[in-house]
Design a protein around this nucleic acid. Structure first.
Length: 646
DNA sequence: TACATACAC
DNA sequence: GATGGTGTATGTA
């Protein structure tokens, strides 16, 4: 009980042990007591020790970041930088596209509720689905702090009456297919993000049926419930990121409609924990927190520091987040987007070579089977292994021929594993990349109608020429379906989801009219905004971004005037060197970036830069800063989700 | 290309 | 009594 009892444990470690689904979703009542029990149950295990080390590493990394920050802001006129960032914000604001109505839907406690369909006597009881690790907990179980990703033995401690059910993937798959089939009536190009959630662009549907978004989504949810007896929550917003955040708002069995208005969106984001943003996980949450960013609104407050530490944090990603700008391009997953295929298995730690090879062989066999049935071969094989200490390693080898056969996968795996012996492992996996599609686009059926002249991949199906033998199997080749949802179910495990919180009741509609933010002149862009939200670096992105991406040809829809948002040339002053510059933002930013590093170099050399504000004092620090900038990393860019399909 | 990290589901 | 599996993106060397 006494909070100090869990003494030695730092707050961050306790939180870490509580697992990744903490914080993303709403929490149950007394989280600290729950966390204490979890930490207590974990203590002393190898898992615990490993988490402790990771926590320590992260803490050290934060210390380095803070040092960097101190060096970066020293003597710099932050006001000027803020002013400069404000200009970037105006540019970004011009990317905002409010023309598409995007819906994110998310099945409530999916696996648990499917189990309920098959066994109604579970109703009202705390139960969970999964094996050693819990996939989904019923809402009753969540009250006790039981969550996905939690090992069952800990869940039992939190809730001794907990009923542990084993998974029935066939059932989930079946229900998932039903749900997706229903939803495709509203947008045939729906984008699945797992077996229990996804995105729709209902703009054309709304036009055709003369419905408001709220009405339409109510109808969708009603229909899903009527036809499957499952409940679904949904968010309605102008882009995918916002829609996803919104679907969490009134979960379970609710919907939330964000006003399609720049100011309302910025207000909405303002209070939002940065952790709720897709792409911000536990690590980035802590890194950002260390520089004072806890909410999306804090991004604005700290924009100058984030600008100076762009390499660490990714300024543009964060600014987009702050503004609530993201991709609204909803499209189905396509086979040719696949990058890898793999298999891995966890087991009680093994240290005998023979045992390990047996496992490796099993994994290879499984991978062969998957690759064959789904029609892939590849050229790079990566072995993954986890020691009994929970440390994870990978070893890779690229080949000059295509592989998908068990024997070969096994052989390469062995070759990669041997140098690591002797050791004790608890997981072995194989993954193949540099893929080639054996079912390459021949029976393009429906796909032809969408998207521009895509891959000019030659039509010949299965060129067996590249492989040693011609797979006898391929009965499947012709039947290339119009969509891939008959494939293996994407995610095996449902992941976190909001907890119950009967109190919530956000107003659900857009009675807000626009009150323009001082920031920007709000301007609409044609459908389909935010080009390349998943591209690599901000600055790179910025210079390329302006093109209006290809619009979806979604039947109805809205015309697409070409947007040539030429950034006007203005005069700016570099906040570092004070030089007056006439240029657009892109080159100005480049100048400043250059200026920053030049400054760092000069400082390190003890030379002074003309008229600079970055001042002397402990010169050596700058050298660190420079090294630090190069060395340290972090930060995701992509607000965009990746889809997958088995 | 090889490897490590972070993240999502 | 001992903490999952599949896949993507990205930084760095």
């Amino acid at each position: 009980m006494d909070p100090v009892a869990s003494s030695q444990l730092t707050e961050s470690l306790v939180k870490r042990l509580a697992g990744p689904s903490t914080g993303k979703a709403g929490l149950a009542k007394d989280q600290t007591e729950i966390n204490r029990i979890i930490a207590e149950a974990s203590k002393g295990s190898k898992f615990y020790e490993n988490e402790k080390k990771k926590d320590k590493d992260l803490t050290e990394r934060i210390a380095r970041i803070l040092k960097l920050r101190g060096e970066a802001i020293e003597g710099v006129d932050l006001t000027k930088i803020e002013h400069h960032v404000d200009k970037i914000i105006i540019d970004l604001e011009n990317e905002r596209d409010l023309s598409q109505v995007i819906v994110h839907f998310d099945m409530d406690a999916f696996f648990a509720n499917v189990e309920l369909l098959h066994n109604p006597t579970l109703k009202g009881k705390p139960f969970s689905v999964g094996g050693g690790v819990i996939s989904t907990a019923s809402y009753e179980a969540r009250k006790y702090g039981v969550r996905s990703g939690m090992p069952s033995f800990i869940a039992k401690k939190l809730c001794p009456e907990l009923i542990l059910l084993r998974s029935h993937f066939e059932w989930y798959n079946e229900e998932s297919n039903k749900v997706f089939t229903i939803l495709r009536r509203y947008d045939p190009r729906l984008s699945a993000a797992g077996c229990d959630e996804g995105y729709l662009n209902i703009t054309p549907y709304l036009q055709k049926h003369n419905l408001t978004p709220g009405e339409c989504v109510e109808e969708i949810r009603r229909t899903v419930h009527a036809e499957t007896n499952l409940t679904v929550s949904a968010g309605i917003a102008p882009n995918m990121m916002l829609a996803k955040i919104c679907s969490d708002k009134n979960k379970p069995n609710g919907q939330y409609h964000l006003a399609f208005d720049s100011k309302a969106i910025i207000d909405f984001m303002g209070d939002l924990s940065i952790r709720k943003v897709p792409g911000i996980g536990r690590v980035n949450e802590r890194l950002l927190e260390s520089v004072g960013v806890k909410t999306c609104g804090d991004v604005y407050t700290h924009r100058a520091v984030l600008y100076l530490m762009d390499k660490q944090f990714g300024l543009r990603f964060l600014l987009r987040t702050y503004l609530g700008i993201a991709s609204n391009e909803v499209k189905p997953y396509e086979r040719n987007e696949r990058k890898s295929i793999g298999a891995e298995r966890t087991f009680p730690p093994l240290s005998s070579t023979k045992d390990m090879l047996d496992k490796l062989e099993e994994v290879a066999a499984e991978l062969e089977s998957d690759m064959e049935s789904s029609g892939w071969i590849g050229r790079t094989v990566t072995l993954k292994f986890k020691l009994d200490t929970f440390q994870v390693f990978t070893r890779a080898k690229s080949l000059n021929h295509w592989v998908n056969k068990k024997e070969e996968l096994f052989a390469v795996g062995k070759e990669l594993l041997f140098p690591e012996l002797p050791t004790s492992v608890r997981l072995i996996g194989l993954r193949v990349t540099k893929l080639k599609d054996l079912k390459a686009s021949t029976s393009e059926g429906i796909k032809r109608f969408f998207g521009p002249a895509q891959q000019a991949t030659s039509g010949s199906k299965r060129k067996a020429s590249d492989i040693d033998e011609d797979e006898a199997d391929d009965a499947s080749v012709d039947q290339e379906e119009h969509d891939s949802d008959d494939d293996v179910m994407p995610g095996f495990h449902e992941q976190d989801e909001a907890d119950i919180d009967p109190s919530q009741h956000d107003v659900d509609d857009d009675e807000e009219l626009q009150i323009i933010q001082p920031l920007a002149n709000i301007r609409k862009r044609p459908p389909n905004s935010v080009p390349g939200t998943s591209i690599s670096h901000q600055l790179t992105l910025r210079s390329r971004s302006k093109s209006a991406g290809p619009s979806r040809s979604h039947g109805a829809a809205i015309a697409e005037p070409s947007t040539t948002t030429s950034t006007p040339s203005e005069t700016h002053t570099c906040p570092i060197c004070n030089e007056a510059l006439t240029s657009n933002n892109t080159s100005l930013n480049e100048h400043i970036d250059y200026c920053l590093s030049r400054d760092a170099i000069k400082q390190a050399q003890g030379t002074s830069t003309k008229g600079n504000k970055v001042l002397s004092s402990g010169d050596t620090t700058k050298e660190y800063a420079l090294n630090g900038f190069k060395r340290l990393k972090l930060r995701p860019d992509p607000p965009v989700k990746s889809k997958r399909k088995g």
